[in-house]
Design a protein around this nucleic acid. Structure first.
Length: 357
DNA sequence: TCTGGGGTCCTAGGACCC
DNA sequence: TCTGGGGTCCTAGGACCC
């Protein structure tokens, strides 16, 4: 029952959004660049999506409130994300990368896993292949990436993050435990802020401490996830590199400029979201059965309500009617609303698109 | 610090059916 | 009159990813 020997790459583009912007705008060279919400002189809502290394030097990081980024670095070039551009560049990069893998899995817009087991005979060849991929991306796209190489996805992912930007880190099977041992548990995939905090109460802060902990206690505290974490801490991860399956939900959401309790404003915004969601569903030829809405109050308390229709549809009229019904309870509360969202799921792919629309 | 927007997966309770 | 067990679907919330 020994684990099949594999060689997995994880490729991660370096500060992707800002890198693309810098490529398109040479005049930004050497300046701090921040892609995210509009800072509005420090009064903007929203967060930083990506910052380049000049901005990171003064502490501007992904996920930070844009107002704080503005205070830290008012001289930065602040840009709103240009997703159509990023998606186009992403598609070009993925086309380059996927031809080097037997199995390929895109992970978000700017990351990918490659199973190259059948393409290389050892880590020396893997290193040469990784360099070749980096060179091709650099020549064709004028962008850099970091690649991690390891015996599984877990190790490859952590390795790609180990030296950035423009890094290449190889971790052989025999070196995995030693490599992971000193790292904080937060580096493990699926260990986020909440799990990190919970682990801290058990006096676990490094992957090594997690590996030495009693797995039965971990199972008690975290359920199935506990055993998963324990195995991962030992460098064990049998998950396959596999292509993303079909889309399971489509959603749009929006945060208001100012929190509002006005039903008219909320309903009008919701109609727009419904239109956008329907347009996308139709583009992908998907009919949906389940409609969900999301409401976030001004204190960040968040609720969702959903309803499964007795029929499938892709019509905006049906979506608007359902969404309107679902949001009523929240409007009646007269509390100030910060955000609303609309989501559809439970898809049926249509072969008869034309006749039904 | 004052917290976007797009997703996936898991859990748990209740309804309903056989 | 109080009581099965299994299976599936629906709903709400939450954690996590980029």
């Amino acid at each position: 029952m020994s684990e099949k020997k594999r060689i997995i790459f994880h490729l991660d583009m370096d500060h992707f959004y800002t890198a693309v912007e810098e490529r398109e705008h040479p005049e930004y060279a050497g300046k701090p660049v921040v892609v995210g919400a509009d800072p509005k002189q420090g009064k903007g809502r929203g967060v930083v999506s990506t910052s380049n290394y000049e901005a990171r030097k003064v502490g501007v990081k992904s996920g930070m409130p844009i107002s704080r980024a503005w205070r830290l670095c008012p001289e930065a070039v602040f840009l709103q994300p240009n997703f159509p551009l990023y998606i186009r560049v992403s598609n070009e990069i993925m086309a380059i990368v996927r031809k080097y893998a037997d199995k390929f899995e895109q992970w978000g817009i700017d990351e990918a896993f490659l199973d190259v087991t059948a393409r290389v005979k050892d880590y020396a060849e893997a290193e040469a292949l990784a360099k070749k991929i980096k060179r091709e991306i650099s020549e064709k796209e004028r962008l850099t990436c970091s690649i991690g190489v390891g015996p599984n996805k877990l190790t490859a992912k952590i390795a790609s993050d180990f030296q950035k930007p423009n890094g290449l880190t190889l971790v052989k099977g025999s070196e995995v435990q030693q490599f992971l041992e000193p790292l904080p548990v937060r580096k493990l995939l699926w260990v986020g802020r909440k799990t990190e905090e919970k682990l801290k109460t058990l006096s676990i802060s490094t992957i090594g401490e997690l590996a030495r902990y009693d797995p039965s206690v971990l199972t008690e505290v975290f359920g199935a996830m506990g055993m998963q974490m324990f195995l991962n801490a030992h460098g064990i991860d049998r998950s396959e590199v596999e292509p993303r399956t079909e889309v399971k939900s489509i959603s749009h959401e929006t945060t208001f400029q100012e929190d509002t309790a006005e039903a008219d404003i909320v309903l009008e915004a919701m109609d727009v979201l419904c239109e956008e969601v329907c347009k996308e569903a139709l583009n992908q030829r998907l009919f949906f059965k389940t409609v969900a809405i999301k409401v976030r109050y001004d204190n960040f308390e968040t609720h969702t309500r959903s309803k499964t229709l007795p029929f499938m549809t892709a019509r905006a009229r049906d979506l608007k009617k359902s969404a309107k019904g679902l949001i009523q309870v929240y409007l009646q509360s007269r509390r100030k609303i910060r955000l609303i969202g609309v989501r559809v799921s439970a898809f049926v792919k249509s072969e008869k698109q034309k006749t039904l629309c």
